[in-house]
Write a protein that binds this DNA or RNA. Structure first.
Lengths: 337, 337
DNA sequence: ACCTCAAAGGCGAACGTTCGCTTACCCGCG
DNA sequence: CGCGGGTAAGCGAACGTTCGCCTTTGAGGT
């Protein structure tokens, strides 16, 4: 419980005083620039290190008009996919010498109206959006600064925001083709949150694969499951009740697949003999379900890193807006198919 | 790809100009203080909103000598426990009007020597440490600023850092007592990373419970498993090979338990009939193993939130250092015991 | 001895705030 | 009519930087 001494931190003036030059010269040295004799340079550097000088980025930002900081507005950190993505974004920012201001918004999407101003007050150089619920937020376009580089890993209404996502249509296609190749033709789909671009894309991939295999897409084989285990469990029961004859299921999310697996077991159907299951997302935990889940791996870490790369490039170039990026996904065959 | 106009943001001077007063008066109004007539106040507020004025926190920090920002140095974000903790810390910081600067360090613990200066440059008001690997870092004490409030959710050598953790001894005790109560007496332990305080505490709880039940703690029933699935799998095999007679196992981490479960199945032992298993951490995914894992739930979110609360209190009071906090854990009985 | 020129370093301003003082004014009072 | 007191607003400085430009110095050439 020591009292904190109100000692102010050492500034470039302190360093200057100790080395007997003006603080401007000190600044020159510390930034590598200017013409300064080797001897004074050495003296200044020595003084700086003696005093433990740490430059004040706030002050520097003030005159430079940039903070070397980007904001990241996230949905739920507990989402494993989003966590990976965050890890990728943070690592890339750090690699390029940028700091990361983190904030999150509520699951209902409320909070954007606070999160954005908080970022603006801190004068971040750009913003990375990583909150799926933003897609549904009608207020978002109003609160977006059109002059600030923004990249999102989700779809954002209005089209003004650069997007870096996985190729979700490919994901649905890959999963479904795999089931077709295993000889299935009555293939159900347990979708993600209705209305989301992500869901639509994966569903498009699913239909595309069916189309390609010349089997009819039947609406009653599709059920909305959301993105968690209980949703998957419930949706599977509804689906089975309607269509006892399904022999394979494409789940939009691994957690939904976990729920489906558990419901299938409860219903006494063996996986994969009676019913095959393929998930989507590629969570670590999908490798340890029983049986281990066949899934489509989405490169979350890479998405985060690439999104940050795009954002920093925009910041560097002084532009806002860039063409969207879609990263490829990969099928990981395990034991549920 | 629109070019970004180099238009400078609106400052209090702009607002002042538009409302015909000095910028200092404008500042007064915007901060609620000072004596200003209602009419000019209204005029200024109007101008500010017309112009879309957003205060510059950098400039404010410069004169106020505080940034309303705390730093968070994390280990791997992909760790689900750490993610929850991060969520709790972020929510609490936001609730109290603080921003969060996030950075992470490498698994080997390297990176601290970069992370700390990065935080100092940005003049954060305090730092939250959330990286288990820091415990092993001998360089850490040197790079810690003794004047800055710091809280950690892991043990930090030197004792200078305030700690907010779960009651890990209780966790080990609870888990082991539960197994004893189920009638077991040959109880193995699959520990976390050797040498870590966390592991030592949980192990102490394990021995305490055995002691209490008057059964001897036998060293050959203890095996180091680390903190992941493969570690758990391998450790279980080593353990079983040595002691075929174990009927129950306490795993220091849920992921280790997942590995143990899968190894037990491979060895043809039924859970819980032939061998009971209890995990520790309380991950979401533990509810969906088969059979669902009995585990001790660690309140990660609360730990993060409480750590942030303690940190902000230290910042507010201008003190550095506070007594450690230990949060209680809870046993969640499911089907592996 | 004079002029030129480059190198080394200093100076002032600016970035956008907050804060303590001073000034200008209006009011009522003795 | 002069004075104290309160209210409204302005002024100057400070926070810690960067940056463009100016001054000083000394060496080299003629």
């Amino acid at each position: 419980m020591r009292e904190r001494k109100p000692t102010r931190r050492v500034s470039v003036k302190d360093v200057a005083a100790r080395s007997g030059v003006s603080f401007q010269t000190t600044s020159k040295v510390l930034n590598g620039g200017g013409s300064v004799s080797d001897v004074t340079r050495a003296r200044i550097l020595q003084a700086a290190s003696d005093l433990g000088y740490v430059p004040n980025l706030q002050a520097r930002s003030l005159v430079m008009q940039r903070t070397l900081t980007v904001g990241l507005i996230a949905g739920d950190f507990s989402d494993p996919g989003l966590s990976r993505c965050l890890a990728g974004a943070e690592a890339e920012a750090r690699r390029q010498g940028y700091g990361l201001m983190l904030t999150s918004i509520e699951p209902e999407g409320s909070g954007t109206e606070y999160a954005m101003p908080a970022m603006m007050e801190r004068r971040v150089d750009g913003i990375l959006l990583a909150a799926p619920q933003m897609e549904d937020d009608p207020a978002l376009p109003h609160v977006l600064d059109p002059m600030l580089p923004i990249v999102s890993i989700n779809h954002i209404a209005g089209g003004a925001v650069t997007e870096v996502t996985a190729d979700d249509e490919q994901a649905g296609d890959l999963a479904t083709r795999h089931l077709v190749a295993r000889g299935h033709s009555v293939i159900g789909a347990l979708t993600g949150v209705r209305g989301r671009r992500l869901t639509q894309s994966r569903q498009r991939g699913y239909r595309k694969a069916l189309d390609h295999a010349q089997v009819d897409a039947q609406p009653e084989l599709v059920e909305e499951a959301g993105d968690d285990v209980t949703g998957g469990e419930a949706a599977l029961r509804r689906l089975i009740e309607r269509r006892q004859d399904v022999t394979a299921i494409f789940c939009h999310h691994d957690l939904v697949a976990v729920g489906a697996l558990s419901a299938l077991r409860a219903l006494g159907r063996r996986v994969p003999q009676d019913c095959a299951v393929v998930g989507c997302d590629g969570l670590d935990s999908a490798a340890y379900t029983s049986p281990p889940l066949t899934t489509v791996r989405v490169p979350f870490y890479e998405i985060g890193a690439e999104a940050m790369r795009v954002l920093l490039k925009m910041i560097g170039a002084g532009t806002v807006g860039a063409p969207p990026t879609r990263l490829p996904v990969h099928l990981m065959v395990r034991s549920t198919t």
